[in-house]
Amino acid sequence: MKIVNLSQRTPEWLTWRRQGVTASEAAVILNRSPYQTPWRLWAEKTGLCAPADLSANPFVQRGIALEDQARQGFEQRHDTLLLPVCAESTAYPVLRGSFDGLTEAGEPVELKVPGQKTWDAVAREGETSLAFGLYWVQVQFQLAITEAAQGWLVFDPVRPNVRALEFVIARDAAFIKGELIPACLQFHEAVRKQQEPTPDSERDCYVPEGEARAAWERLATQYRDADTRAARLETELKGLKAQMAEAQGGLVALMGDFLLADQVGLRILRYQQRGTLDYAAVLGAIVPDLDPQLLEPHRRPASERVRVTLKCDDTEPAPAEPDKPRRRRRNASAQASAPTADDSAVSVTETTLEPEPIGYF
């Protein structure tokens, strides 16, 4: 292991990280992360896509603010000192780690200050939890650099009367040599040689090239112009509907107890309509213990949904990070043919949130 004299989270540190492969990227490279794909990481490192800005993410901010307290807590519990350092692998200098702390025995300690949902999941599921699986890879990467026999993975919410969850991670030499290091070195070469990995069509962003790029720009302009006009018309329509509602209320008031009127080109009929049944409430009342799976055979075919988000600029969007909602100016729906029996299509305009992040750096 070679110690590198850098202060973490400085511009020089960021440059050093970008020039190699880091522990926090290992799970992504192995395609074990639900938050980022290998293609997306490659695209960010080669400059094709802008990395997500997590500086305003409250979970990231909290983790950074409480890292020193989490470090001190470990030191007190184990009567040791932790040294936060940056280091490179002696055998493979492109493998780089920013350690939350090394014990006096040279064992890496990875500190996480999780949100409540993540801490509850780790407390409940232990080594089978998503967070443990992701950070187990990160600690193995650190063990590859330090060549230590074991390391520590600590989930410490830094809250009164809440114990930290500590896991001793044994070095998995077969995993490190046979899977981790080869994948990381191959990824680094792909970045260096601009060799694009295969994107995941379900998780990665489509990037048009050549003639498709020109067609995308033309159609995007067409959509934005139409949306601008639609917004003006919707505002006008809303005002007209308000005028109609006001006039209707006045006409009904003039009718008194009469149920029918037909004057000056307007026919008004007042009537009662029965309310619809709330079938979910009916099922809950009649069969309170009904297994939801029994309803699945009666579900109608799925339909394709399309969400179009108008952005304030033309820059390529970074993916939404956990617990960071996408900023929206206005959602416009576009109809798309669905591969279903009834050929139905549904437009979607709701805003969605991503899952809670489970770590930082």
Rank of each mutant, 00 (worst) to 15 (best):
T221F: 09
W39R: 02
R329C: 13
T103C: 09
L283D: 09
A87W: 07
L251N: 07
L240K: 15
P288G: 11
W13F: 12
W216I: 07
E189A: 03
E196R: 06
E316N: 03
F175R: 04
P182L: 07
A148Y: 11
A320L: 13
L66Q: 06
D225V: 06
F59Q: 05
D225G: 01
W216R: 15
L283P: 05
C49H: 12
S347Y: 12
L251S: 11
L54K: 05
R77S: 08
R232C: 04
P34T: 02
I286T: 02
G133V: 00
E179R: 04
P51D: 08
V348E: 10
H298E: 05
R159W: 01
Q243R: 15
A70S: 14
L14F: 12
T352F: 12
A247S: 05
R305C: 13
D120L: 08
R71T: 06
L237M: 14
P197R: 02
S89A: 13
P317M: 07
R77T: 03
Q116S: 12
A123H: 02
D172S: 02
L259A: 08
A26D: 00
T10K: 03
R9D: 10
Y206D: 08
E234H: 10
A70D: 01
Y206T: 08
K311P: 04
A253V: 08
V158C: 13
P199C: 08
T349F: 11
E236P: 03
V191M: 03
T315E: 14
T15C: 01
I169P: 01
W13N: 06
L143N: 06
V139S: 02
A65D: 14
R203D: 05
L259V: 09
G250L: 15
C312K: 14
W216M: 14
V191Q: 05
